[in-house]
């Protein structure tokens, strides 16, 4: 079942004694064909897990690069049906790399939550991250998603403290995504010492693997964070490559994105192993 794909991947990483790289790109950015080619190339370039953004016009918790990626994708015709088609196409050639859909609730709600879970499961989606569905709204999607066998990945943040931690982590599955700064994606870079303290705090409340993201842009930063977390998430830096190559040949866009993924993967793989 799909949840096991995430668990298997983290078990493999642990067995290999290395940390994981989670890459974020937006589905259909800058167009469907290029997006399909990027996805297909990610595992060989060193992505251990794939977060695929569901385009949304108003991503309130994301910075300008991710919002721009959404708008490029929407302009190029991306929608939920095509996002799930991208997953299905990817899954036809790759049975092992977990795919986690990430985004905001409205496109799922309008698609129909029940229908979404059926179609996402059939396409080969393993987990969901929905930024604007905190535990207070678990009845909306989290509970049905868990029943349907998906992982519902929780975001924990520097403000998730005290009695709120068990609440947030209680229904978490797959892994925990630690948002390393108070802020939006692609903004300032986290302080390594702060991240270390926060991850240690999280580990007292969960046995799940912890992926750390927000503000990590370079291989050097990725390595430093990989020393602390079990996986490192990079997103804005990748979609910024796509933005910078607006109008370039498809092969160049795909090649440049995958080149950065290889660099980041080398950084992550240079970090120490699991404790």
């Amino acid at each position: 079942m799909s949840t096991r794909r995430i668990e298997r991947r983290f078990a493999t990483l642990r067995a290999q004694g290395r940390k994981g790289l989670v890459t974020f790109v937006t589905a259909g950015d800058p167009d469907l064909a290029t997006s399909r080619a990027i996805l297909a190339g990610l595992p060989a370039a060193g992505a251990d897990l794939i977060e695929l953004g569901m385009p949304f016009t108003d991503p309130m918790a994301d910075g300008p690069p991710v919002q721009a990626a959404s708008l490029r994708a929407i302009r190029a015709g991306a929608n939920m049906r095509r996002t799930l088609e991208l997953v299905r196409d990817f899954r036809a050639d790759d049975a092992d790399t977990p795919i986690i859909l990430m985004g905001y609730y409205n496109p799922i709600y309008v698609y129909g939550s029940a229908r979404f879970l059926v179609d996402a499961g059939a396409a080969g989606v393993d987990g969901l991250i929905v930024v604007d569905l905190p535990p207070e709204e678990d009845a909306e999607l989290c509970q049905p998603a868990l029943s349907a066998g998906f992982s519902f990945v929780r975001l924990a943040t520097p403000t998730t403290l005290g009695e709120r931690l068990p609440r947030v982590l209680g229904s978490a599955s797959g892994f925990v995504y630690y948002v390393s700064i108070t802020g939006i994606t692609g903004a300032r870079t986290p302080e390594v010492a702060d991240v270390a303290a926060a991850v240690a705090r999280l580990r007292r409340h969960t046995d799940l693997p912890i992926a750390v993201g927000f503000g990590i842009k370079t291989a050097v930063q990725a390595r430093a964070i990989a020393e602390i977390g079990d996986a490192v998430v990079v997103g804005s830096a990748l979609v910024s490559v796509i933005a910078a190559l607006d109008g370039a040949e498809r092969g160049d866009v795909v090649g440049s994105v995958l080149a950065l993924v290889r660099e980041l993967a080398a950084g992550v793989r240079a970090a120490g192993g699991w404790s």
């Binding site: 918790a61 604007d132 207070e136 929780r154 943040t157 403000t159 998730t160 947030v168």
Partner: peptide, 10 residues
Amino acid sequence: GRFAAETLMP
């Protein structure tokens, strides 16, 4: 409802 990012929830 409260459809807000976790950072804001507390």
